[in-house]
Amino acid sequence: MWTPEDTYAIARIDLPDASTHGWQVRVQRRGRKYAKYFADRPCGGVRASYRAALDWRNDLLSRLEQEVRTSTRICQRSTRNSSGVVGVSKVAVSSSNGETYLFWQATWSPEPGQRRCVKFSVKRHGDRQAFRLAVEARRKGIGTE
């Protein structure tokens, strides 16, 4: 009767002893919870309350998706960050022969669920220039340049 897409974030609540019958919508995004209950009787029956819940859920998801597209998450510098730039860090890589190579690394997320990373060799570019290149790569990657 219902497909997974039809019931995403929507649950049927039937508690006959409490005379409670309806649909519950629950969504959580970025730590914030959204919930609303649609009782059968005030909405005009099971199908009408489901339709109201579905419409509310779809509108909510649309608004939340729009927020994600129009807002950039503001990253703050961690106390563990010694570079002073969010997403830029100095890393050491040990090779199989025991030698250690230093890099300045830039990381960013171009899309939800994706991660990009680029490293600049301290040996090749020097410490200051490798750091500058990493900062520039990060800015370009997050679209602020």
Rank of each mutant, 00 (worst) to 15 (best):
L64P: 02
D55M: 11
L102S: 08
N58S: 14
A106G: 00
D14V: 11
Q105W: 02
G87C: 01
I74R: 12
D127N: 09
F38Y: 10
G22E: 01
R57C: 09
N58Q: 13
A9L: 07
T79P: 05
S71F: 00
Q114E: 15
D127F: 01
D14G: 05
E65M: 00
H125C: 05
S49E: 10
S78G: 08
D6I: 06
R63G: 00
Y50P: 05
V93M: 04
A137K: 05
Q28P: 02
D14P: 03
H21N: 12
G113H: 04
R41L: 15
S109P: 00
I10D: 02
D59E: 13
A48L: 12
A39F: 06
S62Y: 14
W23I: 03
I10G: 01
F103P: 01
V46I: 10
P16A: 09
A134Y: 01
P4M: 06
W2Y: 15
R128L: 07
G45W: 13
S109L: 03
D40W: 11
G44T: 13
S95C: 10
A106E: 01
W108P: 03
A9K: 11
Q105D: 05
K90C: 08
K140T: 11
D40K: 13
R32A: 15
E65I: 00
N81K: 03
S82H: 11
S62M: 14
S19D: 08
K90G: 00
W23H: 04
Y101A: 11
R41D: 15
S19Q: 13
P16S: 06
W104G: 01
W108T: 04
V118H: 04
L133F: 11
N81V: 00
S121Q: 05
G113M: 05
G87T: 04
P42E: 12
L60G: 08
E99S: 12
I74N: 09
T7K: 06
N58P: 03
A52G: 08
S19V: 08
K119R: 15
V118K: 15
S94Y: 05
V122T: 04
F103L: 02
A9E: 09
Y101N: 08
K33T: 11
R29D: 09
R128W: 01
E111C: 10
R47C: 09
A11I: 12
S78W: 03
K140H: 10
R41E: 15
H21K: 14
R138Y: 03
G126S: 06
R63L: 11
N81M: 05
N58I: 04
K119G: 02
R139S: 13
V25H: 03
Y50A: 06
V68D: 14
Y37F: 15
S49G: 04
T79C: 09
Q76V: 13
N97F: 01
K90P: 02
R69K: 13
D127Y: 02
V46Q: 15
G45S: 13
T107Y: 02
N58A: 08
W56M: 10
F131I: 04
E136L: 10
A9V: 00
Q114H: 14
C75K: 12
T72L: 10
A137N: 02
G87P: 02
V91C: 05
G87W: 02
F120Q: 00
A35E: 15
A9Q: 11
K123W: 05
A11W: 03
R115E: 08
E65Y: 00
D59I: 08
Y37N: 07
D6H: 06
R57W: 03
G113N: 13
T7H: 02
R57N: 10
A39M: 09
V93T: 12
E111K: 14
V68C: 07
R29Q: 14
A18I: 06
